[in-house]
């Protein structure tokens, strides 16, 4: 492995990790703060990719970002509406929206299952020209991703400290208590999911432009991959300030990408990615449960042994 090789790998790990970390930040908002497991994440990621690619393809790379995020807001609003106003269980609401989005995404891509951006101008190619000739040449892709992540982390951290942000955090913690603070939890869930899905769509939008391809299946399993990253990040910064925990989510995403890249180097087939993330999520979520149950289990087996001796 040459230096050049390593550098390319580091670049690609950082870039993909950062872009993917936006989805992790979205789940940080919906899953960790609002306590809603938003299963529409997969479809919303693809929605962002499709809308972003379609807009960029038509010659407006800058416009692709707000367009994708606006699409994400709509998707999040529908998910929230289903679970707060239509009496649909929150998991089911996510799954339903996810299914519906499959058709929407193909419609957005003019009935095709992919948009090729090889010849199109994207946010990345625009900035490449800015960076060319400077010492940062070649790092433009990482720079775009990093800028997006820094902005989202800053805004998210600030947002979670506002009155509305506190109410959103309280909604995930104790929804009754939010009512007593004269805030309608329907409102907090809606705002939270709209914001989270805007960020998920941004993630998809940047991913499509960085890979020069929007594909109908690119979001598949995203929610599990992002959850795995979120939980890895959570073990790094379990307690502490909100900002630190948001950074932890980003670090988790990059660590996840790095481990994945390493596994590929060690000849793990690429299709194993999703199985690995599934296992990570299982371990990370069940670990606290077993930590609680294990002493009980040992006690029980211990007693049985004593019984056998007697």
């Amino acid at each position: 492995m040459t230096i050049q090789n390593i550098l390319t790998t580091v670049q690609s790990v950082t870039e993909l990790g950062l872009i993917g970390s936006l989805t992790v930040l979205a789940l940080f908002l919906s899953y960790s703060m609002l306590n809603v497991c938003d299963l529409s994440t997969d479809g919303c990621f693809t929605l962002g990719a499709a809308v972003g690619a379609a807009v960029a393809f038509s010659g407006h790379p800058w416009l692709s970002i707000p367009a994708a995020m606006a699409a994400g807001v709509c998707s999040g609003f529908i998910t929230a509406f289903l679970q707060t106003r239509m009496g649909i269980n929150s998991l089911l609401a996510g799954i339903i929206v996810n299914t519906g989005l499959y058709s929407v995404n193909i419609a957005v891509m003019s009935g095709k299952s992919l948009i090729n951006l090889n010849a199109a101008e994207t946010v990345f190619t625009k900035l490449k020209r800015v960076f060319d000739g400077t010492f940062l040449a070649g790092w433009h892709r990482v720079a775009v991703a990093l800028a997006a992540v820094v902005i989202v982390v800053l805004l998210l951290t600030l947002f979670l400290k506002t009155r509305l942000g506190l109410a959103i955090r309280a909604t995930g913690d104790n929804p009754e208590m939010v009512r007593y603070s004269s805030v309608n939890p329907v409102f907090t869930v809606t705002v939270g999911l709209c914001a989270a899905n805007a960020v998920t769509a941004l993630s998809g939008c940047l991913m499509a432009q960085s890979q020069k391809l929007a594909d109908i299946n690119m979001g598949q399993g995203m929610v599990t991959v992002a959850l795995a990253s979120l939980l890895i990040g959570g073990t790094l910064f379990r307690r502490g300030a909100i900002g630190l925990r948001a950074v932890g989510a980003v670090v988790g995403a990059i660590v996840f990408r790095a481990v994945y890249a390493l596994a590929l180097r060690l000849e793990m087939p690429a299709y194993m990615l999703k199985l690995v993330s599934a296992v990570i999520v299982i371990i990370a979520i069940s670990a606290p449960y077993f930590r609680k149950k294990l002493p009980e289990f040992f006690k029980r087996t211990g007693r049985r042994k004593e019984g056998g001796d007697a």
């Binding site: 009155r163 506190l166 109410a167 955090r169 309280a170 913690d173 104790n174 009754e176 208590m177 939010v178 007593y180 603070s181 805030v183």
Partner: peptide, 17 residues
């Protein structure tokens, strides 16, 4: 437990209220 959010701090609970 009814009136407070457990994982938020004393200050954050009060600010919200």
């Amino acid at each position: 437990k009814t009136g407070t959010a457990p994982s938020m701090t004393v200050e954050e609970n009060l600010l919200l209220a």
